[in-house]
């Protein structure tokens, strides 16, 4: 074989990088765990039931621990699925979701304390749902369509909750409980668990 020209060498490097990137995108595209989402949905329903029992829709003593437990469950299930599918844990769809969701959840926490301090806790359900939905929609660009639709629906449910705060708890249950479960089941059936 002749000595490769500089142009050939650069093209080869770029082509190998393209192949690596494409394979990574394809393999992590379905790496979001459906089981994880269903379990997180269960936590959402349990939190909604506890809030309903206590007669306080946005009870922070319930929803903050529920959020922390949900994040831990999501991380554990996604790591397990990535290992099962033999794909990198910290790459592609999961990495992007994590990068987008971290500041989103931070802003959610900030608004939670601001709205509580301002004496408007009735706006918390809508704020949580809409912010979470915005984060998921942005972060799911490289993931399966179901995740993107879940984000859009969360924004919609959040918008309703902001203008109809009296439905707050029902919408929290529908979003963090029902929607997580429905989308999780869809991913389980279509994308291997």
């Amino acid at each position: 074989m002749t000595i490769p020209r500089h142009e050939d060498r650069e093209n080869a490097k770029e082509t190998l990088e393209y192949i690596r990137r494409t394979m990574e995108s394809a393999s992590t595209f379905t790496a979001v765990s459906g089981w994880g989402l269903v379990t997180v949905g269960g936590v959402g329903l349990l939190a909604a039931w506890l809030a309903w029992s206590g007669n306080q829709d946005a009870d922070l003593r319930i929803w903050i621990p529920a959020a922390i437990v949900s994040v831990m469950i999501a991380v554990a299930f996604n790591v397990a699925k990535a290992r099962r599918q033999d794909v990198p844990i910290w790459s592609g769809a999961i990495r992007r979701l994590a990068w987008v969701m971290t500041p989103t959840l931070g802003v959610g926490a900030l608004l939670t304390f601001a709205l509580t301090a301002q004496g408007t806790p009735q706006l918390l359900p809508g704020t949580w749902l809409a912010i979470y939905g915005a984060g998921v929609t942005a972060g799911a660009e490289f993931s399966v369509r179901a995740i993107r639709w879940m984000g859009v629906l969360f924004v919609g449910i959040g918008a309703v909750a902001l203008f109809r705060p009296e439905w707050g708890l029902a919408l929290l249950a529908a979003g963090f409980g029902g929607l997580h479960m429905v989308i999780g089941l869809d991913i389980m059936l279509r994308h291997g668990g």
Binding site: Y18, I19, T22, M23, E24, A26, S27, F29
Partner: peptide
């Protein structure tokens, strides 16, 4: 060809 290489690469991963 780039698009065909992309198709084959993606299907090699999944």
């Amino acid at each position: 060809e780039r698009m065909r290489l992309g198709i084959v690469s993606a299907l090699a991963a999944e």
